[in-house]
């Protein structure tokens, strides 16, 4: 029956492997990786406090900055993505054209280049903190991808839903707001979670423009103590623990949404 919500998972796939219960292999792997990483980190810090414990004490500031950049950018990217997604399906040629152009241009330029570019371009006009510049750069980039996720989510809602709303006298805006978007959100949620994790990982790129994120803090420590191998071991494990933690949360959220109704 066409009015049953189409089950559709848009797997963007550049985030993390979401441990779904249906995928027993990943589910088990998640446990081994997550608790293994915590165990290794704890073991190293306990048995060789110099340098491991020192590194661990040095990087929390960076973790906070990484979260700051990630959360700021994802929030802004969702807003940009919503506008872009609506633009991409709009019949208004100007709105559609601008949205499509944005997607086309942004997806064609490497993120690292965008981060440099926005940092220096913004710097010519206004003096903004590097963190803000980083957030804007990440959001502009991810907004383009998010726009495609939103568009796909909206288009996945059966045509009959639109027709039913219109036939009740609702206009396009009311239909979108009350009927299409609430249903699209459920379809969009998993890929947005995926984008979130991808963004969290990519946020390490901002260390290039004097933003003291997790990676940059690690580099600072390493270059002073010459413990490159040890420091990057810790940095990698911390990133791993963070992303696994969030992928678990997203997995749980996904299940909630699919059980509900």
């Amino acid at each position: 029956m066409t009015n049953e919500a189409k089950k559709q998972i848009i797997d963007v796939g550049d985030g993390a492997a979401i441990p779904r219960k249906s995928d027993l292999g990943l589910f088990t792997a998640w446990r081994i990786a997550f608790f293994g990483a915590i165990g290794v980190l704890g073991y190293l810090a306990y048995t060789k406090p110099d340098p491991y414990l020192n590194i661990l004490k040095f990087v929390p500031d960076g973790i906070l900055v990484t979260f700051q950049v990630t959360l700021g950018a994802i929030g802004l990217a969702i807003v940009l993505g919503l506008i872009t997604g609506l633009g991409r399906i709009s019949k208004n040629r100007f709105f559609n054209g601008v949205a499509s152009l944005y997607v086309e241009i942004i997806r064609g330029i490497p993120l690292l280049v965008q981060i440099f570019y926005i940092y220096y371009a913004l710097g010519r006009v206004v003096k903004v903190p590097a963190v803000l510049s980083a957030i804007i750069a990440m959001a502009v980039c991810y907004g383009a991808y998010m726009g495609e996720v939103v568009r796909a989510g909206i288009e996945s809602i059966a045509k009959g839903q639109n027709e039913a709303a219109l036939s009740l006298g609702m206009n396009g805006r009311q239909t979108m707001l009350h009927v299409i978007l609430p249903q699209a959100v459920k379809v969009i949620l998993p890929p947005v979670g995926n984008e979130f994790i991808a963004l969290l990982k990519d946020s390490s790129l901002v260390s290039i423009i004097a933003v003291a994120d997790l990676l940059r803090r690690g580099r600072e420590f390493a270059s002073e103590s010459f413990t490159y191998f040890e420091t990057y071991t810790v940095i990698a494990l911390v990133y791993l623990i963070i992303t696994l933690f969030f992928s678990k949360i997203i997995g749980v959220l996904e299940e909630r949404v699919s059980v509900n109704k």
Binding site: T2, N3, L168
Partner: peptide, 16 residues
Amino acid sequence: REEVGMVFQSFNLFPH
């Protein structure tokens, strides 16, 4: 459309 209702083959109730 406010004055002309429509009933569809596939019902098209709002599932949410």
